[in-house]
């Protein structure tokens, strides 16, 4: 079997390689045509949306693995609930959300850890105001699965679907908080970097925050995406690409925690390239941008929100960063970010 015939980690890292893999293997043949206004597999959005009467039924699913399973600020259970709640929220679904939970456990997994994860799932569900309606549990032999895999599926209804392809030239780009927290927290928590710092993951369910933003912005919120794998860089590229527009990013305006920035400098990792699990990047029509920003900032999860850029027409699909010294194209990350020596 040649190298090309094996899947590599790069193809799961949220970048171009992953989109290509999904496009070639799954979308091809699986993606059924959808009615106008609906969102299907081929859209590669955060979830699917099907019109039912005058509302939309939105569904999304997400499998979760993380190392370490418990990290500062969260754990795999919180991640599994928040991840799916957030994918629904990005489509505009913030209330009456139902979740399902599938658990695959490796033989020998500590029961105490499983109970700790379950408690975390319960707490996060309560925080988000969502319920687990059904589930499935499998135990695999030693070595047949790596510890614990949690898969959550979420469904909910909404009056208006927000997609990740709605950016229009002139829109402002808003992020609801600091960038890079989760990715660098998990990297630092792996403990092999000899760093004496505790970065805290931002993993949190965002439906409450998104509700506040949608109440303030309504139709003026043109697109939403949660900058998870691949970070802000991947999210903005995908949004710009799908909308056929460009984004001008003001680097100085992007909120980054000082300790996250420091670890990034030490390891040669750009905080814009790593995952967030409790943040939204949205396009907002310029005339409503300040109002939405104020509403988001008034929410506990949106205190560090900022307007970080503007949507322009040219060049389509590109993200241009104004560094304060000059301009550059934001590079889309390829594969998991690794510490660099040069």
């Amino acid at each position: 079997m040649s190298v090309r015939e094996r899947i590599t980690l790069k193809q799961g890292a949220g970048g171009r390689a992953m989109r290509a893999l999904i496009g070639e293997v799954f979308v091809e043949g699986l993606a059924a045509p959808v009615a106008p206004g609906d969102v299907g597999l081929a859209d590669l959005d955060d979830g699917a949306a099907v019109r039912i009467g005058d509302r939309w039924l939105v569904a999304t699913t997400d499998a979760h693995v993380v190392h370490p399973r418990f990290f500062p600020g969260g754990d795999i259970g919180r991640l599994a609930v928040a991840g799916t709640v957030n994918d629904l929220a990005m489509m505009g679904v913030t209330d009456a959300v139902m979740l399902t939970l599938a658990v695959v456990i490796e033989e020998g997994f500590p029961r105490a850890d499983l109970e700790r994860v379950a408690a975390s799932i319960r707490a996060t569900c309560a925080e988000a105001g969502v319920r687990i309606m059904t589930g499935d549990t499998k135990v695999m032999g030693k070595g047949e699965v790596d510890g614990l895999v949690l898969t959550t599926t979420g469904v909910g209804l909404t009056d208006r679907v927000v997609t990740d392809r709605g950016l229009v030239a002139g829109d402002r780009i808003l992020v609801t908080g600091t960038m890079g927290d989760h990715g660098l927290a998990v990297l630092a928590a792996r403990g092999n970097l000899a760093l004496d710092v505790e970065l805290v993951s931002d993993v949190a369910p965002l439906n409450g925050l998104v509700r506040v933003a949608l109440d303030a912005g309504g139709d003026a919120i043109t697109a939403m995406k949660d900058p998870t794998r691949g970070g802000l860089a991947s999210a903005l590229h995908e949004m710009a690409d799908k909308a056929g527009v460009a984004v001008m990013l003001d680097e100085a305006a992007v909120p980054i925690r000082p300790d996250v920035r420091a670890v990034g400098e030490l390891l040669g990792i750009d905080p814009l390239h790593v995952a967030n699990e409790g943040k939204v990047v949205m396009g907002v029509r310029a005339d409503r941008a300040e109002a939405v920003l104020a509403a988001v900032r008034a929410h506990p999860l949106g205190r560090d929100a900022a307007l970080i850029g503007t949507v322009v027409a040219e060049p389509p699909g590109r993200v241009v960063v104004d560094t304060g010294f000059g301009r550059r194209l934001l590079v889309e990350p390829e594969g998991e970010p690794l510490p660099r020596i040069c």
Binding site: A194, L195, D196, V197, P258, D259, R261, A262, V263, E265, L266
Partner: peptide
């Protein structure tokens, strides 16, 4: 990366890099 020495123990220094400590 430049950092400031906080303490020294033999051949190892604890150095502060923008608030992050590293040996």
């Amino acid at each position: 990366v430049p950092g400031r020495v906080l303490s020294i123990d033999g051949m190892i220094a604890v150095v502060d890099f923008w608030g992050v400590k590293k040996q």
